[in-house]
Amino acid sequence: MRVLIADDHDLLRDTLVTYLTAEGAFDIGTAENLDEALHLMGRGKGFDLVLLDYEMPGMDGLKGLKKALDHEKCQAVALMSGSAPRAVIKRALNIGAAGFIPKTLSATSLINAINFMAVGEKYVPAELLSDAMLAQPKLDGFTQRESQMLRGLTEGKSNKEIARDLDLAEVTVKLHVRTLYRKMQVANRAEAADLAREKGLIQ
Rank of each mutant, 00 (worst) to 15 (best):
M1L: 08
M1G: 06
R2V: 10
V3C: 05
V3E: 01
L4K: 09
D8F: 11
D10G: 06
L12R: 07
R13G: 08
T18M: 13
T18P: 03
T21V: 11
G24S: 13
A25R: 12
A25E: 15
G29V: 14
G29A: 15
G29K: 12
T30P: 08
E32Y: 10
E32V: 14
N33V: 05
L34Q: 03
L34M: 09
L34I: 06
D35L: 11
A37N: 08
H39V: 06
L40R: 15
G42R: 13
G42A: 11
G44D: 15
G44C: 11
D48A: 13
L49A: 04
L49H: 03
V50I: 11
L51D: 00
Y54R: 03
Y54T: 01
Y54H: 07
E55I: 04
E55V: 04
E55A: 05
M59S: 10
D60I: 04
D60G: 05
D60P: 02
G61H: 06
K63P: 00
K63M: 04
L65S: 01
L65T: 00
L65N: 01
A68F: 02
A68D: 05
L69G: 02
D70S: 07
E72N: 08
E72I: 03
C74S: 12
Q75R: 13
A76R: 07
V77R: 00
V77N: 00
M80N: 00
S83C: 00
S83H: 00
A84I: 01
P85N: 05
P85L: 02
R86C: 03
V88I: 05
V88Y: 00
I89Y: 01
R91M: 00
N94L: 04
I95K: 03
G96N: 05
G99N: 03
G99F: 02
F100G: 00
I101T: 01
P102N: 02
P102E: 03
K103G: 07
T104F: 07
S106L: 13
A107N: 08
A107F: 06
T108V: 13
L110R: 02
I111Q: 09
N112V: 09
A113S: 12
V119L: 06
E121C: 11
E121F: 13
Y123R: 01
P125Y: 02
E127R: 04
E127L: 08
L128F: 07
A132D: 14
A135F: 12
P137C: 10
K138C: 15
G141D: 15
F142P: 12
F142M: 15
Q144V: 09
Q148R: 15
Q148E: 13
M149N: 04
R151L: 14
G152T: 10
G152I: 11
L153Y: 10
G156I: 10
S158L: 10
K160T: 08
I162D: 01
R164L: 09
R164P: 01
L166M: 12
L166Q: 10
D167A: 05
A169L: 06
V171D: 09
T172H: 07
L175I: 05
H176I: 06
H176W: 09
V177I: 15
R178N: 13
R178W: 11
T179C: 10
Y181P: 04
M184K: 07
V186R: 04
V186K: 04
A187I: 08
A190G: 12
A192R: 10
A192L: 14
D194G: 14
A196C: 14
A196L: 12
G200P: 07
